[in-house]
Amino acid sequence: MSETTELDKTRRYLVPVARLQLPGEPDYVHLSLYEWEPRSQLWLTGLAVCGRSTEQGALPEGTEVTCPNCPLYEDTYRAVLDRESFRVLPDEERSALAALPDQVRVAVRESGLKQKWIADRLHVSEKHLSQLLTGRVVMTPEWAERILALCGMELVVTVRPRVGGAR
């Protein structure tokens, strides 16, 4: 994408990207998700939608995708991107969500319940529950509510004015 193009930083885009310069890696142009990373203040790309490693950054708009596998996933990705309400969270919201796994892990420990029992009730593996509780997998508020309900607790979200009043 052109650096002069002003993109909406709350949305993700599907863009052409170059292959990672590794020996034996086919010389294809791939498709990758392109999203704003507020901590680094940069637009970043990830793996190609076909799963191949790619160079960081988008190629110019209109660059032809030559990977034979990326187009197989393109319609699915575009449909998801059209429906999603992705937005970049402000720092204070990101901090609150980052603390969620720790708070839920403490609640589980204090409840005296075994993780195996909780995992069975949630129909997930013990490994997945452990990953939720340690932050290796994103703990959404919905997952937190389900886990906390089993512990006899509830999730409470508070919105309050900032200290000092105005922005």
Rank of each mutant, 00 (worst) to 15 (best):
D27S: 11
L20K: 15
S53K: 12
P68E: 12
G24C: 07
L44I: 14
G24A: 09
E55P: 00
E35L: 10
K9F: 00
C50R: 12
L44K: 13
S32K: 04
R11F: 01
H30C: 05
V17Y: 03
E35I: 08
E6A: 11
E55Y: 00
H30L: 12
S32E: 09
Q41C: 07
L42F: 09
S40W: 05
L44Q: 13
S32I: 09
T76F: 06
E74R: 13
L7Q: 00
Y73T: 09
E25N: 14
Y34P: 00
S32M: 08
T76M: 14
P68V: 07
P68A: 09
W36K: 00
L20M: 13
V65I: 02
K9A: 04
E37T: 12
T54E: 02
G57E: 08
L33S: 11
P23A: 11
K9P: 05
S32Q: 07
P38T: 07
L22H: 05
E64P: 11
C70A: 09
C70T: 09
E3G: 15
A48Q: 10
P71N: 10
V15Q: 01
P23Y: 05
S40D: 13
P68I: 10
R19G: 04
R52M: 13
T45P: 10
L22E: 15
E64D: 11
P16F: 07
T54H: 03
G62C: 08
T76P: 00
E55C: 08
Q41P: 01
C67Y: 02
S32D: 02
R19A: 06
L47N: 12
S2L: 10
G57C: 05
W36G: 02
E61F: 01
Y13W: 05
P26K: 09
V49I: 15
R39M: 11
Q21H: 14
T5H: 06
L42I: 08
T10K: 12
A18K: 11
L42H: 15
K9G: 03
T54G: 03
P68W: 04
T45C: 07
P38A: 14
V15M: 03
G24L: 08
T76C: 09
A58W: 00
A48Y: 10
N69F: 13
E6R: 12
L7V: 03
